[in-house]
Amino acid sequence: MLEGFDKAFENRVRLGMMSILMVNEWVEFIELKELLQVTDGNLASHITYLEKAEYIETRKSFIGKKPNTTFRASKTGKDAFKQHLKALEKLIKK
């Protein structure tokens, strides 16, 4: 395994999700789905992965009767992502 690489970000969907959450606060499920062009089930499983790693925070609320779930990157998640980026950059410079 390469030095500094985070297993959580090996997957493109999770990497993409974190990229979006680095520059946006509280993003809705549907927005993520649209930007990443993945299915509901696929996205949900990656969300669960990142939640377990405590890289993202989830907020559930209701708009009228419709459930609305939004996500943001946690401090841990942001730090991990930056670390991962650094490792990628190092790899390029080699």
């Binding site: 979006i20 520059v23 950059e89």
Partner: peptide, 16 residues
């Protein structure tokens, strides 16, 4: 890694 970084940049821009 170059492509990966490009994808990240692209998504950050497209989402903001």
């Amino acid at each position: 890694p170059v492509e990966t970084l490009n994808d990240i940049k692209n998504l950050m821009e497209r989402s903001s």
